[in-house]
Design a protein around this nucleic acid. Sequence first.
DNA 1: GACGGCCTCCCCCGGATGGGAGAGGGGGCA
DNA 2: TGCCCCCTCTCCCATCCGGGGGAGGCCGTC
Lengths: 211, 211
Amino acid sequence: MAAELHKKIRVILADDHPVVRDGLAAMVNQQPDMEVVAEAGDGDAALTLFEQHHPDVMVLDLRMPKRDGLAVVQRVMEINPKARLLIMTTYDGDEDIFQCLSHGAKGYILKDAPRPEILSAIRAVSEDRPYTSSTVAAKALQRMAKPSLTERELDVLELVAQGRSNKDIARRLSITEGTAKTHVKSILTKLDAISRTEAVAVAHKRGLIRL
Amino acid sequence: MAAELHKKIRVILADDHPVVRDGLAAMVNQQPDMEVVAEAGDGDAALTLFEQHHPDVMVLDLRMPKRDGLAVVQRVMEINPKARLLIMTTYDGDEDIFQCLSHGAKGYILKDAPRPEILSAIRAVSEDRPYTSSTVAAKALQRMAKPSLTERELDVLELVAQGRSNKDIARRLSITEGTAKTHVKSILTKLDAISRTEAVAVAHKRGLIRL
DNA sequence: GACGGCCTCCCCCGGATGGGAGAGGGGGCA
DNA sequence: TGCCCCCTCTCCCATCCGGGGGAGGCCGTC
C-alpha cells in the first residue's frame, strides 16, 4: 500500500499549540507518502484553510480558541460530508469525542500516542477507514451501557457544577425550585451519585462538563 | 549575546507527549546557540537523564507519568540546587506552578506560547535569569492577596471534591464529623463560597485540586 | 390510539449542610 | 514568656438537600 506513489496524502493540522503543530508537521513531512499543506491555530482558521485546500485529512485538536473541535467537525461536515477528520486530544475522558465521531469524524487519537500510531491513524483516515484508539473504543462500550443525561439535565448539571443552589438554578432556568430538584434527583440517579458534589465529580470524570 | 559561540546551551526535554518533544526539539535544534541533548517521556527518565547529562536547562512538563513535574523539581534541587529548570504546562490556572517556582524552578511558560517566547524563556533560564509569563505573574499577585488553605484544609477539600460527605471525610481522616465540618466551613470562608459544591468549582478554577 | 420519554410541577420528611460562636492543646516565633 | 496559627472538638439552629412518591402536558414512535 506504500507503493502508491501517485499522490501524497495532503494534511491540514489544527491545534492551538505551535509546539504540537511543529512536532506533527515534522513527523508527517518525514513520511514519503504524506505532507502538511497548511496549519491552523484556531477553529476559524481551520475552517478557512479547509475550504481553501480541501485536504485529504484534517487533524483536529478538540480544544481550540474561537471554535472548538466539535464545532469545526459540524461545520466541515456541512460543507463536505465526505471530509476525513482525525480528532486529536489530550484527555481520554472527553465526552465530546463521541459527539465528534457521531457527527462524522473518522478517527480519534490521543496526543500522547507514540509516533507510529499517529501516522497509521492518519493513513487509515485518509483511506476513509475509521481509526479509534483502543481505550476510546472501550469507553464507548461502557458509555452505551450507562443512561445518558437529557439536554435539560445537562443544563442543570452545568449549574450544579458551578456551585449553584437548587433555588438559584430554578431562577436561572426559569423553572420552579421543585422542578430543579427533580432534575437534580434524576441526575444523581443516572450518575449513581449520592450528593450533588459527587455528581459533579463523576461528571468531570466522564467529561460531561468542562472548565 | 548571540555572539557567544564558545558553548551551546544544552537542553533536556521532559514531556510525555512525543509530539510535543518533537516540536520542541525541532525548534531548539534550529537555533545556533542551543541543542537538545536528551528527551524524557516521564518523570523518572527526566531525573536519570538529568544526572547523566547535567544540562544547562531542563524543560519540564508539569503533568507526567510516574513522577510529576513538582516531584522532579524537588528531587533535582536536592541533587543540584543550581539546576536551571523551565516549567512548561498547558493550563495556566495551575497551583503547582507556584510550588515549583518556590522550590527553585527558574521559569514557567505555557505550551501554547509562540515559538519566540519559548526560545527566549530557555535562553533566560540558561543564564540563570528567571522567566515568567505575564499571565502567571498576574495570578501570583492575585494569589498573594487571597488567604491560602492549610494542609489539612487541602486534605478535606480533596475529599469534598470527590463528593464525600462530612461523615465520610471524618472517617477517612480519623477525625470527628464536627471537626470535618469546621474545616469545610473554613474552606468555604476562604474560598468565598456558599456551598461545598461552589467551593469545589472555585478550587478547580484556581487549580487547587486536579482530576 | 397507545405507549414511552421528557419536562414540568406537587407532596412529605429525615438527615446533611452551613452559619455562628466558643474553647483547649500544641507548635512556632518574637 | 506570651502571642498566634493550626488542628481538634463542642453546641445550637435555620436551611438545604436528597429519597420517596405522584401527576399532567407535550412530543415523538409504533
